[in-house]
Design a protein around this nucleic acid. Structure first.
Lengths: 248, 248
DNA sequence: TTATATCTGTGGTCTAGACATCCTACGAAT
DNA sequence: ATTCGTAGGATGTCTAGACCACAGATATAA
């Protein structure tokens, strides 16, 4: 680490990004620090200023740095932006919170899509899709019920997968080459009804977080539509927002 | 519209961004459409390819376009990413949902910061800050109670502002030159207690969405820490998530 | 002492090229 | 009919410059 290879498949701006990320990870650069100027970096690593600038720009977009014209580029102080805006599966998410994730498959079958699901997945109502109901656990305690609907070429093969011990996202990625890249989600507060209360092992009328999520693959294609019910007092949802900067 | 001025203060890439946004707004380019290639755009508007590319890249980052190597750049189909990830104040937000926002100031005073607030605002506990409690209405119906804590040079002048008829964010921007650019937010489900039930005009035990938000200005400086309680069945929160793309 | 100008270094914008990588379509060889 | 190679065009990466706007320090003049 610390040198940029001019041959090889990895772009130079990408190598520089990794080098700078590493500097932060090991504490070489601390929050609030001024990092070397674009010109310095380009000389130090033997690349052009525009290439160094591209690396910095991407890390600024990820929230790791911020720039001040005339002064320099600094390491951001807040971490949430850097971590939690990422699209993560349930297992990753729970592990990041320092808990142990668990899953129990309640049902897995091919069913015809209803109007709501078909609309979100951009398919025709009635088309056969893969429906998966799972109970989600954190530290062996029931946390949520999640119903996923998936539609893609060959999705019926998912019936044979062991989705109790393997992450759905991981299976999609490794066996089907589907990389989920983006999701839209809506959240609403509500109360738990009788049916769900039994499964989650809580009282009827407990507060709950209802979420509905559409997940997209690289090509702007929706793959999954999922609804979840999280036990109210056991889950906090994090997000971050940015205002697009307007020029004068 | 449709021409890029080479003189004048507006950067060329920014002018092209606005031109392309307009093409989408008026329906010239529809979701799923292939837009002209970078070379075509650069020739058509008399700018270099890198400048055209910068304009496209920024709109890709905003979720308006997506690229496919070897094929071209396309207009995205989903709109939430384009609209609702933005940091908006309450008034903007409610108007975007087609409702009429309203505000009632419950209290406004200078108080010493407690430990939690001081931590989020990166100040010392006990320092005097501006605290604002507001009842938020949508179509004249109570929707939420919001408590904002603000700390910046001269924040005591906010005591003299009319925050019932003026947006707080707008006042901060126009009178104090503070541009809020980024926020971290956490959401949790819960139930409304007796005190809040009275103010919101709902029954005790109604479901609610609890949010806590830290808002940052351009310089990575926290300005506001706000806690809100939204009536459960009257508000849906939207967000979107992106996975950082990894290179092979 | 206090303004005021200048100088230097920063990020912000922009150019005119170059080559790489990937996708598609078309045509040739099997 | 199928397979393969190739050509053209798209985005992806990269360069070596250039000038601008802004911030801060320093030196100069009132």
């Amino acid at each position: 680490m610390g040198t940029i290879f001019r041959k090889g498949p990895l772009p130079r701006y990408y190598q520089l990004k990794e080098i700078m990320r590493e500097k932060i990870r090991v504490g070489d650069w601390k929050p609030g620090d001024l990092i070397p100027s674009e010109r310095e970096l380009s000389e130090q690593y033997g690349i052009s200023r525009m290439t160094a600038r591209q690396a910095i720009t991407e890390l600024v977009n990820e929230g790791l740095f911020y720039r001040e014209q005339g002064k320099g580029t600094f390491v951001s102080r807040h971490k949430i932006t850097q971590q939690l805006i990422h699209l993560t599966g349930f297992n990753e998410d729970i592990r990041a919170r320092g808990q142990r994730p668990g899953t129990k498959v309640l049902s897995a079958q091919m069913i015809p899509a209803d109007d709501v699901v078909a609309d979100h997945l951009r398919i025709k109502p009635g088309q056969l899709i893969f429906a998966l109901r799972r109970l989600r656990l954190a530290d062996a305690e029931p946390l949520a019920i999640e119903v996923s609907h998936l539609s893609f070429m060959g999705c019926e093969r998912l019936l044979e997968e062991d989705l109790e011990n393997n992450s759905l996202y991981h299976v999609l990625e490794s066996k089907y080459g589907l990389v989920l890249i983006e999701a839209e989600q809506e959240l609403e507060a509500g109360l738990i009804d009788e049916d769900h209360a039994k499964v989650l092992g809580v009282a009827v009328g407990t507060s709950a977080l209802f979420t509905r999520r559409t997940t997209y693959t690289e090509r702007d294609t929706p793959i999954e539509y999922a609804s979840s019910i999280y036990c109210g007092n056991r889950y906090i949802f994090y997000t971050s927002m940015k205002r697009e900067q307007l020029l004068p």
